Amino acid sequence: MKHRWKPSVTVAAVVEHEGRFLLVEEHTPEGLRLNNPAGHLEPGESLAEACARETLEETATSFTPTALVGVYQARLLPANSTEFTTYLRFAFCGTLGDFHPGRRLDHGIKRTLWMTPAEIRASTHRHRSPMLLRGIEDYLAGRRFPLDLVYTAP
């Protein structure tokens, strides 16, 4: 039987507070990179649930998605690889909840930081993917779609 190709489905949180955006600095095969709190969809969870989980794991802060900012596709060549990976990212904005000071950050996350749009635009050479800036630009442009746009069957 022929192997069926599937994109890698990811989620990302676009979190803004007082003109700054929450990012993580993480170790990657390409070196230390900036990203939204983001990660892969896991079996049995909705996209919004995955986004809340990933944000908690990477920032030690609860997150509640309130709107879909956009859906993004990128074909990237990971370091030390000869094969491209296609990512399909669902970016959500929402509200931060409680910070959990005793919680360890996910493996590979060095720290969280808050950056202005100008700082993010000036650091594209450090972005994990082009989807980081695009999601923030879409958020700044006012793009918000209701959560029920993404249906999850029971």
Rank of each mutant, 00 (worst) to 15 (best):
Thr86Met: 11
Arg33Pro: 07
Val9Lys: 06
Arg89Tyr: 05
Phe145Glu: 14
Gly97Ser: 08
Leu149Pro: 01
Ala12Ile: 00
Val11Arg: 00
Asn35Leu: 03
Pro130Arg: 10
Asn80Leu: 14
His17Trp: 13
Phe145Asp: 05
Arg121Tyr: 05
Lys6Val: 08
Arg20Gln: 09
Phe145Gly: 07
His27Cys: 09
Glu54Gln: 15
Leu34Gly: 09
Ile109Val: 15
Ser81Gln: 11
Arg144Ala: 06
Tyr151Phe: 03
Pro78Ile: 00
Val11Pro: 01
Ala141Gly: 00
Glu137Ile: 00
Pro37Glu: 04
Leu149Asn: 07
Gly31Glu: 13
Ala52Asp: 08
Glu18Trp: 06
Lys6Thr: 10
Leu88Cys: 11
Tyr72Lys: 02
Pro154Leu: 12
Leu132Lys: 02
Leu22Val: 12
Thr116Ala: 04
Met131Leu: 14
Ala79Cys: 13
Arg143Pro: 03
Glu137Arg: 03
Val69Trp: 00
Phe21Ser: 04
Leu105His: 13
Glu25Cys: 14
Arg104Pro: 09
Arg126Leu: 14
Ser123Ile: 01
Ala38Asn: 14
Thr55Asn: 10
Lys6Arg: 10
Ser46His: 07
Ala74Arg: 09
Ala74Val: 14
His3Leu: 08
Val9Gln: 03
Ala38Ser: 15
Glu57Trp: 02
Glu58Phe: 02
Ser123Val: 01
Glu54Gly: 01
Thr95Gly: 14
Ala52Val: 10
Tyr139Asp: 01
Pro146Met: 08
Leu47Tyr: 03
Asn35Glu: 15
Pro154Cys: 05
Glu30Asn: 11
Leu34Cys: 06
Pro65Met: 13
Cys93Tyr: 02
Phe84Cys: 12
His40Gly: 15
His100Glu: 13
Leu147Val: 04
Leu149Tyr: 11
Ala153Gly: 05
Met115Trp: 06
Leu32Asp: 13
Thr61Phe: 04
Thr28Ile: 06
Thr10Lys: 07
Thr95Phe: 11
Leu56Met: 14
Pro37Thr: 06
